[in-house]
Amino acid sequence: MSGKESLSLAEFATAPRRQRSPATSVPNRVGDESLTTPQSPPEATTTEATAKGAASSEASKALRQLKRERMKGTSHFVNVNLDRETKRRLKLASFNLDTSMQALMEKAIRQYLDANGF
């Protein structure tokens, strides 16, 4: 898009609008699908139908998998009750280490879980 140099309006043709023929009223296309549905399927389609069913369940399985993957990245919260003294120490540590209390707690919890083989 480096259009500045030649912005002449004449170079663009205008598209024609459709001529409305008065005799044929255009049927609403929304109906198309339901109109064709009642045709009974031939017998031979059963294997094809199961294959199709498998394909669509494959698709929804992939979709579920995708949603699960997305959940992995998100945060999950725990609420911790601390006494005043522990909280003060935590706050002091986070201040001195120039990090957040959240980061310290995360690290401490991971360390504990790893050390105890959970």
Partner: peptide, 20 residues
């Protein structure tokens, strides 16, 4: 369609299902 402004050369269909 209401405004008589449907373009030439384009058709629009509606299908809500994979089978459709």
């Amino acid at each position: 369609q209401e405004k008589d402004a449907q373009p030439e050369g384009i058709e629009v269909y509606s299908h809500k299902t994979a089978r459709g």
